[in-house]
Design a protein around this nucleic acid. Sequence first.
DNA 1: CCTTTCTGTAAGCAGGATCGTTACAGATCT
DNA 2: AGATCTGTAACGATCCTGCTTACAGAAAGG
Lengths: 171, 171
Amino acid sequence: MNTSSRFVVAIHVLAAMALDSDKPLKSERLSRSVNTNAVVIRRILGLLRAAGLVVSQAGPDGGFRLARESRAISLLDIYQAVEEGELFHMHYSEPSCDCPIGAYVQDSLGQVFKDADTAMKKVLRGQTLATVTREILQRSGISEKLDEGWTIDELHRHFSFESGRLVLKKT
Amino acid sequence: MNTSSRFVVAIHVLAAMALDSDKPLKSERLSRSVNTNAVVIRRILGLLRAAGLVVSQAGPDGGFRLARESRAISLLDIYQAVEEGELFHMHYSEPSCDCPIGAYVQDSLGQVFKDADTAMKKVLRGQTLATVTREILQRSGISEKLDEGWTIDELHRHFSFESGRLVLKKT
DNA sequence: CCTTTCTGTAAGCAGGATCGTTACAGATCT
DNA sequence: AGATCTGTAACGATCCTGCTTACAGAAAGG
């Protein structure tokens, strides 16, 4: 029982876009960061675009960018964009079985499964893409700049994502 | 984003054993109730036995029975017996990536993912196998006996699971 | 002791999901 | 027109499930 890697990859590329929001990011560049094929990235970004989380543009200087600011994108938004279906599913063999157990087990479990699903989603709803990028900045050595008087929001604005690496922009 | 059918099947067969706790139930009989192959049932019951939820006995008049009473078996016990691993997993391509995003995204998400997993499990911990069988009895028409003055616990004791069907025992 | 009746597993097959890859149509800018 | 992207189809490899057959071993009863 585990989700596909789409969820983590989606968070990864969205974090990259949030950290470098000035220009559109190309799928080929993102794929190098994730270490996979560009088509895989475009497939996942297609799901995110369908969910209204990113916008894309073809042609030179094209690419992907966030459709809204990162603090307005929850992890639940991302989860629901790339994963589908319920956490638990009932479909085993054939629900049509003579004994009442088969008939009523599924009804009896429906509410519990829904509650568990809701509890999991509530946690994801409480975290945003901005939460993730903020923590990335804190965990990376670059947030040592904080000790030099920089605010983390300043770092956020002056960060760039060059050739697969997070670097400070030349200002 | 969904569990295997093992979880629901495990609950199904455990409910059958709880509803008919007098004698051991054979895998072939349980497989008819679930509408699948007996080996599939034995595989799942093997996991439940390894988790200490059921005991088995070979030979004539053998079969499976609960290792402890149904109110002492939570849905989380069952879940952890048949499902493995974390709800979300991080392993995409190669974690070894030059940019800090790849390095720190996983660390940043670790706590959130763990929280979501815990929240889901907390719901499952709140329900027991006895909760399920009680609801099955209520939902099946047989609980109309309640209107005749029977307590649901009396029904619980006088129920039997004969040839793939829930029936009242001849007392 | 031998037969019957079970569990316990291994092995092989089919189906579906996921991921990587190649290929190419279409959009967009210069 | 040509270069540079996205969007998507198609195919193969791999893995996980679940179904089935097959058989070894345990337990009970003659």
